[in-house]
Every structure is written in C-alpha cells, then in structure tokens.
Design a protein around this nucleic acid. Structure first.
Lengths: 216, 216, 216, 216
DNA sequence: AATGAATGAGCCTTCATTCAT
DNA sequence: GATGAATGAAGGCTCATTCAT
C-alpha cells in the first residue's frame, strides 16, 4: 500500500470518526463502528492514531479549521448588521447536516454534556477566539467595555439562542413536531430579538450610569 | 431494618444516581458506581428499580417534579413579572449544585447530546407541560396566538438563555474564568434582555399586522 | 398464620413447583417464578424446604405416588392383553396435560437430559419397580428368562416407543404438523407393532435355541 | 498464528462446546466453561461465533452433517437390509462417546426437554430431511403411502428405540447395571424387532385394504 | 505496512440465598 | 412464623487494545 492509499485510509477513518463521534459522543462511539464505516480493520485506529482519544482530538481539530474561516470578514459591517450576519451564518451552519462543519457542533454538545480531555484545547483554540470577536462586537453595540460582566452575559445570551437549536433539537422536534427549521427565519428572529435585548441593556445601562454619575 | 431505613436505601440510590447520571450521562454512568456511592450492593438497583433505565426515568421524574411545583403559583402574577420570576427561579435552581433540582438540567444535556429510550417519555411527561405553560405566558406578552411559529421561537429563545448557563458551564467557566455566577444577577439580566426582545417582536408584529390590515 | 394456612402455602408451593419444573427443568426453573405462581414470598421456598433441590425432590416424590397406583391390577390379564392395556394406559397418561401425573414424565425428560442428584432416588423408588413388572410380563410373552439381555432390550424397546411421544413431542409436532395424537390410536399401534416384534424375537430365539440344542 | 492454528482454535471451541452442550444443555452450559475447555479467552465465542446461540446451532449442524453423510448410500440396498444398516449405524454412532457424532443426540435430548430458539432451525434443516428419507424407506416396506398416519407412527417407533439408548442412558445404566451396550447387538435386536413389527403392520394393513377393495 | 485473532477488563442483569425484623 | 430487603457470585456480552504474522 503506497502513500496515497495510506492517506486515503487515514482520511476515511477521520471522516467516519467525525460522523460517529457527532452521533454518539466520545464514550459511546465505538472504534469498531468507525473502522467498519471506514472500511478498515479493527486495529486501524490504534495503528494510525495510537489511541481512540487521539483520533478524537484530531477529528475535532480538523472540523474546527473549516468553520473558523467563514466568519472573519463579516466584522467589517456596521455592528448590528454584522451581528445579524454572524447569527444567521451560525444558524445556517448548524442546521446543515451534510457539511463537516456540522460535526463540531454536535461533538461540542457531547463535549458539554461530558467533557473529555480534549475540551481544554478546543476552548482555547477555537471557541475562545470566536467568543472574543463576538464580545468586541457586542461591546460596541451596547456601549460597555469588553471586559464587563454585562457584556459577557449579552454575548452568552446570543450564543445560547443559536446553539439551542442545534443542541436541543431532539427535544424541540418532539415538542413542536411541525416546526419549520428554516435557518434564515430562525436567524432573523434571533437577530431581532437579540438586538432589541441589547438595546434595552444599553439603555438601562446608560440610565444607571447617569444615576451613578449624578450621585457624586 | 425498618421502613425509614428502607426508604433511605432507595433514596440514597436515587441521589447517587442523580449525581452520576448528571456527571456521566445515561450510557456512561455505571450501575456499579451508583451503588457504590449509595453504599449498596450491585444488585440493589435491579432490586429497587428493576432496571438501569427505570432508575434513570425515576431520577429524572423526581427532579422535574420538584422544579415543577416551585413555578406553579408564579403564573398568577402579571405576565412580565411572572416571566421574570420564572426565569430567576430556573436560573437559581440550575446553579445550585447541591440540590437535586439541578440534576435534570445536566441529565437533559446528556439526553440532548445522546437521546436515550427515555427521552420520549421525559418530553411527554415533564418538559411538554412546562413548555406549554411558558408558551401561554409568552403569547400573552407578545400578543400572538399560542400556536404560532414566532411564539414558539420566543419561548425557545428564553429557555435557551437559561439552559445555556447550566449546559455550557464547562465552556463558560473556561472562557470567563472570573465570571460571577450569581443566579439573581443572571436571572435579572436574562429577564431584561428577553422582555425587551419580546416587546420588539410584539412591536414588529403589530406593525406587520397593521400593514396586513391596511391591504384589504 | 395457623397450621392449615401453612399447609396451604406449602401445597401451593409444591403445585407451582411441579408446573415450573416440568416446563423448565431443574436448572432453568427459578425460585422466584415458583413463589410468584404460588403467591408466596421469594424466601418461601427456602423457608419451607430449605433448598431449591429439596423442593424438587419433594415434588418428584409426590408426583410419582399418584402414577404408581394405576397399573397394578392390569397384570392379572393374559400377557399380551396386559401389555396392550399397560401401553395404552401409559400413552394416555403421558398425553394428558392437566393431571399432575403428566409432570413426572416431563420432569423425567429433563432429568434424563440433565440428571440431578434426585435421579438415583427416582430410579430406585419409581422406575425400577415398574420396569421390573414389565420385564416379568415380557419374559412370559417371549419365553425367555427375566434376567436376560434380550428380555431387557425388548422391555426397553416397548418403553422407548411410549416415552418417545411425550419426550420428542416438540420435534414430532414440527415434523408432522397435522398428526393426530389420539392416545388410543397410538397405544393400539405401539401394541400391534411391539407384540409382533416380541413374537419375532421369541421365534428367532426358539430357532437359535433349537439349533444350539441340535449341535450337541 | 497461521491458518491451521486459527482453525484449530475455532475447532477446539466447537469440540468443547459439543461436549459441554451435550452434558449441560443450552441454558445450563456456560460460555466460560466452553472457553476454558477450549483453552481460549472468554470472549473467544463472541469473536468466532458472535453469540452463544450461534455457536450452539453450528455445533448441532456439524454433528448432524457427519451423521447424514454416513447414511446416504445405505438407501441403495433392498429396503429391509437398508433399514437394518441404518439402524445399526445410528446405534453405533450414538454409543460412541468420543466422536462428535454422538453429541447431537444428547443435545437433542436437552432440546426436547427444553426447546430453545434453535429448535425450529434444527428441525427444519437437519432432522426433517433425515426423517423424510426414513419415511420413504419404511413406506416401501409396509406398502403404505409416505403421507400416512401409520407410516409416520412406524418411523417414530423405529427412531424411538434407537434414540432411547442414548437418551435414557442415565436411567438404563441404573436399572440394568450389568447391561452390555454393544452397538451391533442392540442394532441387530432393534432391526429384528422393528422389521417384524413393520411386517405385522403391513399384514394388518393388507387385510384392511382387501376388505376395503371387496366392498366396491 | 497492515491485519485478523485473541485478550481481559468491565458492563448490566439474574439468581439462590440470607438476615433483620 | 413469615417477609421484604439486601447480598455476592456468576451469567452473557461488548469494548479498546495488543500481538504475531
């Protein structure tokens, strides 16, 4: 077996692993199923990656690189437009079931529910930077410093709504069997809702600050 | 062994199970660990609950019942006050790590990431009813019918924010190491944010309706 | 609980055990099922009989007493008539599913397939005596001594045919789905077949003996 | 480990399983004991056969295939000679304790006493065909159609006698402690006995038929 | 370089039995 | 006298991993 075939096996292993980890989570995913899907031997994972967890980390790492690139330019728009664009983009990416980009959301859901040794790296390398840029954007909208508790909660509030649709999907589709999961509609809703929320926070914040300033 | 001690064993089993299921999820939790924590024999789960999954459902059910009772009366307040009270209550209950009340959120996180056979029952019996009453409340605030796509998304948006704090906790505490997780503060923030969002939705909705009415 | 109730529980336990042992055999029968059927506590067997195997022996012992009584008088008929009567009686008793008398055949099937500690006693106390009287009868028909290898094989041949219908029932009803299991017809067939066989053995035996006698 | 050794492990597993299943029956036999006897790991059965029951079916199937092959050509002899040859062959195979060929009788005894899910397959695949060819042979001897109740009972009567020696062995050796289990002698006896029986049936049948033929 | 066989730990569950009441 | 709770051994099975080839 030559180099390209080797790579092919490795790649098939990674792809299969992405699907299986996304579906079952780290613990419940089995090396056997991954190898079966990849058309490889049971020992292939251990041979190519040494370990189940090493394979997992590698899958995660690759999945994130893809998702990371898409958002960068949207930060050039005016703040509220940028936020809308980013929210819509996130929702769209989460709903898409075919792209590899969807993996890391589902895998992340598992990771949240049951953190593995890979979580620290993932947070540091992927989530952290994206959270930081979102925080900058929000801080501009609400007029509060980046390093502020309220700013943080606002960012989390926005993310929460987006993530919820991917994350609570099994429950949502049971509660609302005939719900329309059109990404654009959901994105628009979350944007409207959130921007109003942010403005309200900004207003109450200005008021508070004014009061505070009046006191002394 | 008298009655109270008997109950104690069963209860210890339920408590231990709550902790372990919350930490590991259904699949990864082991009966052995649960029994060990409860100071009981390996066969105790089988004896008292018949099954690992029966124990699981029971843990979930009890955890939800506690939460359910606390909210009932708050629906008597004026809609926006009621919403604030409910949000704050949920956040408070989720943050408390010692009470059994927090279990079901973490367990639900696992359930979302990796649905078990119990999810259908859980959705039908516990989540469904609570979602329904919240939807009634929100529909009153935004002036849209209960059975409306926008109403649904609003409810999900509110729930999303609350749940996120419990659900994404491992990530949040890594991103914001010095964050203050005071439940009241978080509750107040989510309420302000959400009510503003709901009002904005209500406003845009009124506008749309007006436009629509002008057409004929 | 007074004496009669005690006895009642003990009796219900024995009856339930008879049914379950007949159906499942000693090993696969569970104390739980027996107690459940008897409407008694799980510990009832151990309490009343000390042991699962003690209960088994007791069930067997009782079941045999019933069957033992029926055959005695038939030995007064002329040999071939007696044989026919006995064969028909055995077949009839084996086919009847309701009588307690059927138990010991099914239990015996299990015992043959997987002898327990009880087999020795059963053979000695029940099967042995009945085999002995049958052997006397057959020896009269074929004109060979009781303690003769051929006599033994003849008796076994007759018993074999009768027992087979009870014993191989699951297979027979699969091979011959529309077979008529009328005990009288089967009894008549086995009798005709066997008496012819016995006469042939008697004839060949006479011939052999004659030859042998002619030699010196 | 090369191919022949690989096969050796699988074969050792089959041999060990044959012995253990024959001794204990399906339910009471344990995978552990089988693996222990085969000098293999506990997981070996699962690896090679997937299941305890799959192993069971395979053991049975192989044991029957061996027996099946030995009989094929004997059907070419004149009917009564063929029957004698077949009966003797069966007895011989059943008595031999070392050959795998004897397993299936003892296993069948367990199966009869306590049918497993495998019985249907076993009856259909192995017992059925052999029963069918025996029935053809017998129908030729007694001059009755293959699909006749009497023909069936005759076949069952022959089989019964043969099987009994393997099946009731624990009882027989207790009743007749000094019995000579020489297969040839037993085979000869059963043949003589059965052919006489069959002829008697044929005769009574001819009489009946004659009567019937006289009527029209 | 890559595989199929084999491993042993660990899973949930069931069982006969015991023990305090 | 009789029970329900609790036990620990053992059952079949699955898993990630290793090893000889």
């Amino acid at each position: 077996m030559n180099h390209s075939e080797q790579d092919a096996t490795r790649t098939r292993l990674l792809e299969a692993a992405g699907i299986v980890f996304a579906e079952k989570g780290f613990n419940s995913a089995t090396v056997r199923e991954i190898c079966l899907r990849a058309g490889a031997n049971v020992a292939a994972v251990n041979y190519h990656f040494g370990d189940k967890i090493e394979l997992y980390v590698e899958v995660f790492r690759r999945s994130m690189v893809l998702a990371q690139e898409a958002e960068a330019e949207q930060f050039l728009l005016p703040p509220e437009q940028a936020l809308t664009a980013i929210i819509t983009g996130m929702v769209r990416r989460m709903q898409s079931s075919e792209e590899g980009a969807a993996w890391h959301v589902r895998i992340m859901a598992h990771e949240l529910a049951q953190p593995t040794a890979a979580l620290d790296r993932v947070v540091q390398e992927v989530i952290g930077p994206r959270y930081a840029s979102l925080r900058t954007l929000v801080s501009r909208i609400i007029g509060l410093p980046v390093e502020n508790e309220t700013t943080r909660m606002c960012v989390l509030g926005v993310i929460a709504q987006v993530v919820h649709y991917a994350h609570a999907r099994p429950v949502i589709s049971r509660i609302c069997p005939d719900m329309d999961f059109d990404p654009d509609r959901i994105g628009r809703h979350i944007s409207t809702f959130s921007i109003a929320g942010l403005r309200a926070i900004a207003a109450s914040n200005t008021a508070t600050q004014t009061e505070h300033q009046e006191v002394p």
